[in-house]
């Protein structure tokens, strides 16, 4: 029988190892990619936003499904996150500006801090939108939330149209808000 070249065997082994590595890695990270486009919205690629049930700072149960029909800006944040702190006054302004058109900003605190501390922080920042205490499982549903802030733009049909990871400019956030607010108009026109 013809003797096999050891180099070929080594190459085959390395290829198998690399396929295993990248295959498993890709499979593991798939949920992040499935939550929609990385930077700007693309309705064709949008996915339903995972529903959640979390306790808000005022003790009520906050469900994403309660806001169906509204354009939702879902912001994951924490008290120790300085970029999150920079965004909050923007969200307050944007809630004031677009609330009447159907925008609802929702905050989810991914924080180990005491609920009282979070409430104090929120009060100090003048937050005018509901804030819930986050759970890791909810973060996982949204791709893992491995850093903060992370913001998801959910249209009136409950689909993630856009997401912003990290701090971006207020203008970019406002553009994404306009897109999800417009989603109702598009849906109505499509129905005609």
């Amino acid at each position: 029988m013809k003797k096999r070249d050891p180099v070929v065997i080594v190459v085959v082994a390395v290829v198998i190892a690399l396929m295993l590595f990248f295959g498993i890695r890709k499979a593991h990270r798939a949920p992040v990619a499935e939550l929609g486009p990385a930077t700007s919205g693309s309705p064709a690629k949008s996915r339903p936003a995972p529903d959640f049930s979390l306790q808000s700072l005022d003790g009520k149960t906050l469900r994403l499904s309660d806001f169906k029909g509204k354009a939702v800006l879902l912001n994951f944040w924490a008290t120790w996150c300085e970029p999150c702190k920079i965004e909050m006054p923007w969200f307050v302004d944007l809630q004031n500006k677009y609330g009447a058109q159907g925008l609802q900003v929702l905050g989810v605190a991914m924080d180990d801090s005491d609920k009282k501390d979070i409430a104090k922080f929120v009060k100090d920042m003048g937050v005018n939108y509901p804030v819930a205490i986050g759970k890791e499982a909810v973060g996982n549903d949204y791709g893992g939330v491995q850093f903060l802030p992370e913001t998801f733009f959910i249209d009136r049909a409950g689909r993630v149209q856009d997401k912003v990871f990290g701090l971006k400019g207020k203008g970019e956030i406002e553009d994404s808000i306009k897109k999800i607010l417009a989603s109702q108009g598009e849906a109505a026109q499509a129905a005609k």
Partner: peptide, 10 residues
Amino acid sequence: ACDNAACYPP
């Protein structure tokens, strides 16, 4: 830790 745009859990 943080960078200029995002912060990571403790």
